[in-house]
Design a binder for these strands. Structure first.
Length: 590
DNA sequence: CAGTGAGCGAGCTTCCGCTTGACTT
């Protein structure tokens, strides 16, 4: 019987797809990239059109051998690697290593692993997109040139074993510059005044904040417009007059506010939430997620993958999954929690390639309770987080009653205004299942319960509470906030976020203390040298500009060699100048 | 003659992005 060999990246994915495709197909995994530039040479001929030499890394040899063997046992080859730049390159390299002409190899792509999507995709194979492959190769070569040309300079002039790269050096620079902002920060003092009030003759106290004084509106912080209470004496003068004032409700504003759920998880937000809510590092989160993805033994079901692919930048949820979640919400929580139409989310991140779905349970019906016995404690905690976040995306908005109360305080001719706000939940909606965690440092918005109040109502003053504040320096990066910022800048990919964090620590550039990044001396020295000699490359916009060029290659508007030459000519000059001027760093580094 | 030490030379480190084990902490 003649069968067709299908190649994907991941063995777990291979298993699932094989199940959907049935007996005519044998599905095997490449285990990621199987061919790369050599480890110990540049592997790029910069004088001859940036020609590359590839080799199969030692660890990939067994996988290539397995694929070759599998192709012998089958008739045909279909490359079903991810629908993105890297996936296209893997397809190209697999074809060429298996002796199939990449120009005529059969290529199939899909963005969700569901039966319908797979079967549909296999109905219409296409060819490998050579322009997209060209863009990938340009990316690969550029990263190699940056990394392998600059790093040796650091070995000679700063310390052996150091490294520089398009991604890691920008990450390091952000940490170093943040530290300097903190060092240079001068706190500015300012004051606020709160009044504890109660309706006259009653005991239902609430807090209101002083928002304007006779001279004008108060600035809530030094960088805001208005009158700033800069010293205790200034606040005290107002407090003295306010002590004698008459308080009266001027206006009560009540409106309903609605709040929708957060989008489903992608790699970066999963890492952020797992850090906030569970205290997991990025590496730990990814290892646990990998286990959930690969699957666990469930009684009666065999080995089942519990979540979709965990290295993704997509917010899309498959239609079939949306239907299943909607059904679950209706039966589990009732019709008032359900949506008339599925809620869909669009990614805002630059540079997203969206080859996969969002991270979601493979079946919402596998509730955390039902899988608990098959998971260890941390796996279950992470699964629960993913399950809740996903289900919440298909639940009704939460509704709040938002009340704002303006209060006039009159002391002789002096007129003051205070404001109290409160919020009560009318309907929990999606919050019944999941509420996003807050970063520490996020200010409590001071919203609390207010008594029923009406305009013209008279109030009694119970207490005045002047409070001293100081402006705060920006916070040091955590793993999660670093990843978040990198993603916003389009730097790094879901598969590399955790390793970026490791690299800058392994090199001794930074250290984590109380889960915050602090730069070490060597990190500061390297950053200064790189900024001095390679300002264009350690710039947060460098990757974005590179991506634009890569898009043009993929569109066929530019050639790989043009982009590389345009990059390399000035880069080679900078290298030469750095070679002359980059002074050896002599001071003792620990 | 055996052991020591100075001096020399060779070889290594490194990128980003795709993927799992294998193997320590």
């Amino acid at each position: 019987m003649s069968k067709t060999l299908v190649v994907v990246e991941s063995p777990a994915k291979a298993k699932t797809i094989e199940k959907y495709l049935g007996g005519d197909y044998a599905v095997r995994a490449s285990y990621g990239h199987i061919r790369d530039l050599p480890k110990s040479d540049l592997g790029v001929d910069v004088d001859h059109g940036f020609e590359v030499s590839y080799e199969v890394p030692e660890d990939s040899k067994k996988h290539v051998a397995a694929l070759k063997k599998a192709l012998k046992a089958n008739e045909d080859l279909i490359l079903a690697t991810d629908y993105d730049r890297e996936g296209e390159a893997i397809a190209f390299h697999v074809a060429s290593l298996l002796g199939v002409d990449p120009e005529h190899a059969k290529r199939v792509t899909f963005t969700e692993i569901t039966r319908d999507a797979i079967l549909e995709a296999f109905r219409r194979p296409r060819e490998i997109d050579l322009k997209l492959f060209d863009a990938q190769e340009a990316r690969r070569v550029l990263d190699r040139l940056v990394g392998y040309k600059i790093s040796p300079l650091l070995w000679r002039r700063v310390q052996p074993g150091l490294s520089a790269g398009r991604v890691q050096s920008v990450a390091l620079r952000m940490i170093v510059e943040r530290e300097r902002e903190i060092r240079d920060f001068t706190p500015v003092e300012y004051w606020s005044v709160d009044a504890r009030l109660t309706p006259r003759g009653e005991d239902r106290p609430f807090l209101a904040r002083l928002v304007s004084v006779p001279e004008g509106r108060i600035a809530s912080a030094p960088d805001k417009k208005g009158v700033l209470l800069t010293a205790e004496a200034q606040a005290a003068a107002h407090v003295d007059r306010l002590r004698e004032a008459d308080y009266r409700v001027a206006k009560v504003e009540s409106k309903e506010r609605k709040e929708g759920p957060r989008p489903p998880f992608k790699t970066s937000t999963l890492q952020q939430e797992a850090a906030r809510k569970l205290g997991f590092g990025a590496r730990k989160t990814m290892t646990l997620a990998q286990r959930l993805y690969e699957g666990v033994d469930l009684p009666g079901e065999g080995t089942v993958g519990l979540i979709t692919y965990m290295r993704t930048d997509s917010l899309t949820i498959a239609e079939a999954a949306l239907r299943e979640i909607a059904e679950l919400v209706r039966t589990e929580f009732g019709a008032e929690y359900a949506l008339a139409e599925p809620r869909r989310f669009k990614t805002k991140s630059r540079n997203a390639q969206e080859a996969h779905e969002a991270i979601r349970p493979t079946s919402a019906l596998r509730t955390p309770d039902r899988v608990a016995a098959a998971l260890d404690r941390d796996q279950l905690r992470l699964y629960t987080l993913i399950w809740q976040r996903t289900v919440a995306t298909q639940m009704a908005q939460a509704r709040f009653n938002q009340v704002g109360v303006d209060i006039d305080a009159t002391a002789g001719t002096a007129r003051y205004r205070l404001r109290a706000s409160g919020r009560t939940m009318i309907f929990d909606g999606h919050l019944r299942v999941y509420a996003e965690g807050r970063d520490d440092g996020a200010d409590d918005d001071g919203e609390s319960r207010l008594p029923e109040l009406t305009a013209e109502q008279l109030l009694s003053l119970l207490e005045l509470l002047p409070e001293q504040h100081f402006t705060q320096p920006p916070p040091r990066f955590s793993e999660a906030s670093l990843v978040k910022t990198l993603e916003e800048l389009g730097i790094g990919r879901p598969s590399t976020y955790a390793s970026i964090i490791s690299t800058i620590q392994d090199r001794g550039y930074v250290r984590l203390e109380d889960r915050r990044f602090f730069p070490n001396d060597v990190g500061e020295v390297v950053t200064d040298k790189l900024v001095e000699h390679f300002p264009d490359i350690v710039n947060v916009n460098f990757t974005a500009e590179m991506e634009e060029d890569l898009d043009e290659i993929a569109e066929g508007d530019l050639q790989r060699v043009q982009v590389l030459r345009q990059f390399y000519t000035p880069f080679a000059d900078a290298l030469e100048r750095a070679e002359e001027k980059f002074e050896r760093y002599v001071e003792e580094l620990d």
